[in-house]
Nucleic acid binder design. Sequence first.
DNA 1: AACCGGCAGCCATAAACTTG
DNA 2: CAAGTTTATGGCTGCCGGTT
Length: 291
Amino acid sequence: MAQYTIKELEHLSGIKAHTIRVWEQRYNILCPKRTDTNIRFYDDADLKALLNISLLNERGYKISKIAQMKPEQILQTVTQLCDSPCQCSHHVNALVTAMVDMDEVKFDKALSTAALQMGFQEVMHEVIYPFLNKIGILWQTGNISPAHEHFVSNLIRQKLIVAIDGQVVRKQEGKPTFILFLPEGELHELALLYMNYILRTCNQYVMYLGQNLPFKDLELTYEQFKAECLCTVLTVEPERERVQAYLNKLAQRFPQCTIYVYGYQAQHEFLEFPPNVKRVSCLREFHALFK
DNA sequence: AACCGGCAGCCATAAACTTG
DNA sequence: CAAGTTTATGGCTGCCGGTT
């Protein structure tokens, strides 16, 4: 069972650590265990309870009212609220809960109901991305196990692949070709898959080469198909110090291409983008380019 | 020993809300 | 609408464990 510090709870629930302490002191909301040195730590049950409370609080329920409610009552009210459409944060919370439970059915159900209510693209932008951001915070602190990471990324991957499958685009004369790839050592594929989906919905012709692609193979494919555009996502590779050199290498080796670069490593302020390399700072922006 | 970062606990205050 | 109440947030201080 996972353990969380008060800071991690703050990130996951959006409730400030200070406020969590005050609520505990005033209303006995959450009674965390303590270390020998009196530091609070929380378990999965605490996290789930707080996610529900934060949802009610967000919807205007006063904390004093919530504190008076019994746990079953809170659960019931949350369920009622979740039935009303167009509320994104509860979908995100549902995903976090399903993840800590490693409950595939629940996870799938959360994704499906969200998709039913708002459509797949909106779910990607409004639910899955906020969700990945939230747990990204946990990944950085090492509190999420690799098992959790695989669990969620595989399920989301499946959804994306099914969605992509439904978008067949034929090569036509005069239509540009996009090559999508991740650099060597890079395995974080979700964003690249989503770019694939976006391009196909915008009726663009895509060659998807996937993760961990050696530079040589990229060159070979390029030579063979003469693509007009390249797209890539830099999450951990290349490292901070080597990103600039990598961008320059791409620009120099593929001067005829427009190269779109997304991902954490592409967002650093100090980077200088060569004229044919475009920084993608969010995927909505990327989508807007091809509408 | 001096310093640092994170935390608990207390107090003050701003902002939102309720009541008469 | 003014006064009172509730709630969230920020400041401050001292404590603790770890580091230099």
